[in-house]
Design a protein around this nucleic acid. Structure first.
Length: 912
RNA sequence: GGGCACUUAGCUCAGCUGGUUAGAGCGUACGCCUCACACGCGUAAGGUCGCAGGUUCAAAUCCUGCAGUGCCCACCA
């Protein structure tokens, strides 16, 4: 007999247990497959971890994915699958560069002060530190991933496959370089893809400006704009061709104020008549729509804002001013020249850099793009064929819509942190001024051609030049390599055994917020590279918000830090707190309060263990179950008392529920069932019954212990540390020393369907109802002393289980109808009648009210039931089973009603 | 402008392949330190499942409309 601590102390177990798991090596599927070599047709299960960005600590968003994936992984492992959960971290191109640049800024430095090489060196140190920290945190959370396969997106080994895919796309004509209007972040000094910009509604102003006509300088055409500073780059005024107001002006020339350039008035369908004045200034270099118009009409492009967000030399007196300074100056000047008509308040939708929040400037620039339509088509096909299923389903529609309208993807970035583009130039001719400036590239001659190469080339394939080869200084969008993560981590390039065994992976579990960024691109690139979908299921989880449903953010101060929660309440408490009461794809709320609640459950289970392990026979029983594989249920030939039958039936139902809900990815519901079983059934009833001193006590302890042991295995994925801790205490008490004997890889004992019987549930529920109502009576009348309870029943179920009832209540139980000398309160439960002799404590008025209410309630129920059963359509169309049970119910209700009526009459007589 | 979701007890949320008296946790009230657990035990109060129609023998669950809330996508000066 051992005595465990009164409360579960996670700090004593968690770290130690994780080290046991790691030491045993069972996270590594190779280890398991060695154990099981004899078994044929091994099934494989794999999850590739969405690699956290290696630039900060883990937050709740990470914790949720760790827990969900760990539950899936552990469940698969228990079921005997060859299971791989492959961990990794992401260098996270722009996100990390911005984070590190913020650090540099604290020292008053920019990346250009360090230079490219030094920057990369320091940023790598920063990233590796974070990476190490994250890996430690994943272990604290209990992630059962295979560390021997740990991957980092910037591992040199990933360059070859990523470059191979780039070259293949290039050779297939799917990657191209083009001068285009792109999103430019002047803070990050790079282009961004459309997904990396976020629109925000902001209050701004709409300025109405007069442009004088060349023919008649006293006449004007007025335009409305939110960005007056861009007028320096105007190359036309456009109106809608159907706009009669401007009919006479079309084709005329205006003098662009401030710079005195002549520009034409043209027409274009894109201009809306009812906005502003109906005339729009066209600035092709700094507005996407204007760019379209300019292309159609062959207008010249005048770049007026340079890549630093400063007015260029073409802006004459405004040159070198920052955008916003220029705006003020220009407005002032226009006002002085009487060219500003008015300003209006205006709600604008303004694009910001997702990472640094800087306002995005549309710019024309030469960049690398991937042609997406052909890739998207195949992804759509695969989704339609259900080769990949998305959970929850509704995201299919969202995915289709996005894939259908997909735009080409700009994959080059002017960042330093990332994988450099595998494009080489013979001589510097094709590089932009900016590229040369930012990367200190000297002008060289060469033949001027470009080529893609997987390995670093020594000579130019076109002219044989050896000395002038320059690699494109730009890096790849971080999502380009992330998009290849599922197959590259498994060794696609070498057709490695892992790739053969684990690809396509089973589940991709991630947040819906990166559905387009990542999931869609993995689908497209996966199919492109391997001709197979990268995963069979996509499971999407929602955002984790605070208890009020608000987004967590440092500035709001409502961040709940997962690691401090683990420290306070344990990793399992946090795990359950995050997954309970959640549905796939739904946002969930977390609060310390909720975690305290789940910690209490953990402690409850711990104490059940404490109780079981403290009984004098525990060591022998556990030894028999765990070591000698004794099945106490079989030993007794499945012939137990009602309570044991009942709890076994409930337990087997729990197993079925778990199977079902885990297969459906309904983790929240699955956990609900666990909670209900262990607390409301096992602890509240069976554990109490195990304490009864009678002939059956040893048997009940055996059964209870066996159930608890099996429970630990079945629920291990939901509370891995606690269950393993309890199991290790079990081994301890049974004197088992084997450190490799871990719950982690035990097979859940099969469901014994024979033990599920509704009769047992029904009959045991009678006991529960009697106990509950008796307690209720004691409460209502504040009676703390035992009373006489007379029970009349049809069969002898309660009589046989008298001592069970007695263990829950103190009252004297007599199995016959009380004689008329007793004044009693009566209660009808199913076919059972209870009479409570409360001696002088009966409050007749109170009791009359109670009975009247009960009668009223019954009346209503009878009414609806009667209506249902007298409905011919119901009898005809409803399932027969249902009709039968409804009829029985009505009978019972009527019966109960009748009896209660007599009770009430009796009561009236007594009190009068 | 287009699309997707949500609206269930005081709070936070489950349930919705249609079928008992709609559930949980927290909170509230009352009573308990009962030898596994006060991170506990017992009892109770609390909901016409947003509104209005429809389908059906039967609707919280399916359909339509409306209202409110949230999110995503889209080039509107």
């Amino acid at each position: 007999m051992v005595l465990l601590e009164k409360n579960y102390q996670q700090e004593k177990y968690e770290q130690y247990i994780y080290s046991l798991w790691e030491k045993a090596g069972y996270f590594n599927p190779d280890c398991i497959s060695n154990l099981k070599l004899k078994i044929k047709n091994l099934k494989h299960f794999s999850i590739i971890m969405p690699p956290p960005n290696a630039n900060a600590s883990l937050h709740m968003g990470h914790a949720i994915f760790v827990f969900l994936e760990d539950i899936m992984t552990r469940w698969a492992r228990l079921k005997g699958f060859i299971t791989l959960w492959l961990p990794g971290t992401d260098h996270a191109g722009i996100a990390t560069q911005v984070a590190f640049e913020k650090k540099l800024a604290q020292q008053g430095l920019t990346r250009f002060d360090l230079g490219r090489d030094e920057f990369l060196k320091q940023c790598m140190i920063f990233t590796l530190e974070n990476k190490k920290n994250i890996e430690q945190q994943l272990k604290i959370l209990g992630a059962s991933c295979d560390w021997s396969r740990n991957s980092f997106t910037l591992d040199p080994k990933f360059l070859k496959p990523v470059y191979t895919i780039f070259k293949k796309l290039y050779d297939d004509g799917l990657i191209y370089r083009e001068n285009r209007m792109v999103n430019w972040c002047s803070r990050c000094q790079t282009v961004l893809s459309d997904l990396e910009i976020k629109y925000k509604k902001e209050k701004s102003k709409l300025y109405y400006i007069r442009y004088p006509l060349k023919d008649d300088l006293k006449s004007f055409i007025s335009v409305a704009t939110t960005r007056p500073e861009t007028m320096l780059g105007d190359t036309a005024i456009a109106v809608n061709p159907k706009d009669r107001r401007y009919k006479k002006m079309i084709g005329k020339t205006v003098i662009l104020p401030l710079v005195n350039r002549e520009i034409p008035i043209i027409t274009d369908e894109l201009v809306k008549k009812d906005f502003g004045t109906g005339a729009v200034k066209v600035t092709p270099s700094h507005d996407p729509v204007d760019y379209q118009i300019a292309k159609k009409h062959n207008l010249p492009l005048v770049q007026i804002i340079n890549f630093e967000g400063v007015i260029s030399a073409k802006g004459k007196q405004f040159a070198r001013l920052k955008k916003d300074e220029a705006r003020q100056k220009i407005i002032e000047t226009l006002r002085n020249q009487n060219l500003l008509i008015k300003t209006e308040e205006y709600n604008n939708n303004i694009a910001h850099c997702e990472r640094c929040n800087e306002i995005i400037e549309p710019m024309i620039s030469k960049q690398w793009f991937i042609k997406m339509q052909p890739l998207a088509k195949k992804a759509i096909q695969a989704l339609k064929n259900k080769q990949t299923k998305i959970i929850p389903k509704r995201f299919n529609k969202i995915m289709f819509q996005w894939l259908k309208n997909i735009q080409d993807w700009c994959i080059s970035r002017q960042l330093w942190w990332g994988q450099q583009i595998p494009v080489y130039y013979c001589g510097s001719a094709q590089l932009s001024k900016l590229q040369k400036l930012m990367n200190k590239i000297k002008e060289t001659r060469g033949c001027g051609k470009l080529f893609v190469s997987i390995d670093k080339p020594k000579i130019c394939p076109f002219c044989g030049d050896k000395n002038n080869i320059i690699q494109d200084p730009d890096t790849l969008d971080t999502w380009f390599s992330s998009g290849q993560w599922p197959f590259n981590t498994l060794g696609w390039i070498d057709n490695a055994p892992d790739f053969q065994s684990f690809y396509p992976t089973t589940v991709m579990e991630t947040g819906y917020d990166i559905l387009f960024f990542w999931v869609a691109r993995m689908m497209m690139l996966g199919i492109y590279a391997t001709s197979k979908v990268p995963f069979k299921y996509v499971y999407l989880h929602g955002l984790i918000r605070d208890e009020k449903g608000e987004k967590m953010s440092k500035s709001k101060g409502n961040v709940v830090d997962p690691l401090s929660m683990v420290k306070k309440y344990g990793a399992d408490a946090l795990r359950i707190g995050l997954i309970s009461k959640t549905a796939p794809g739904g946002d969930s709320h977390i609060s310390e309060q909720k975690i305290i609640g789940t910690r209490n459950l953990i402690n409850k289970i711990w104490n059940i263990g404490r109780f079981i392990l403290s009984n004098p026979y525990a060591n022998q029983i556990i030894k028999n179950i765990v070591f000698n594989k004794t099945d106490y249920l079989k030993q007794q030939n499945n012939n137990f008392d009602l309570a044991s039958h009942w709890i076994l039936s409930e337990f087997e139902k729990l197993k079925l529920d778990l199977q079902k809900h885990l297969a459906n990815f309904s983790f929240g519901v699955a956990f609900d069932k666990i909670n209900n079983f262990i607390w409301s059934n096992f602890a509240d009833w069976y554990v109490e019954i195990m304490k009864i001193d009678d002939d059956l006590k040893p048997l009940r302890i055996q059964i209870g212990t066996q159930i608890f042991y099996e429970f630990l295995i079945w629920t291990h994925p939901f509370m891995p540390f606690l269950t393993e801790a309890l199991y290790s205490e079990m081994k301890n008490i049974a004197g088992i020393k084997d450190e490799n004997d871990l719950l982690l890889i035990k097979n859940p004992p099969p469901v014994r369907k024979k033990l599920i019987k509704d009769d047992w549930t029904k009959n045991f529920q009678k006991i529960q109802k009697v106990v509950q109502f008796t307690r209720n009576i004691h409460n209502i009348y504040s009676i703390r002393t035992p009373v006489k309870l007379f029970i009349v029943e049809k069969n002898n179920i309660l009589k046989i289980n008298k001592h069970i009832i007695k263990s829950f209540i103190n009252d004297k139980i007599i199995f016959k109808k009380p004689s008329s000398k007793y004044k009693t309160i009566t209660k009808k439960i199913d076919n059972i009648t209870l009479y409570y002799n409360l001696e002088g404590a009966i409050d007749f008025q109170k009791e009359k009210t109670r009975l009247k209410n009960e009668l009223l309630n019954l009346e209503n129920q009878i009414k609806t039931k009667k209506a249902l059963i007298s409905n011919k359509e119901f009898i005809k169309k409803a399932p027969k089973q249902l009709v039968k049970s409804e009829k029985e119910k009505l009978k019972l209700l009527k019966n109960t009603y009748k009896q209660n009526k007599t009770f009430l009459d009796m009561l009236k007589k007594m009190s009068s």
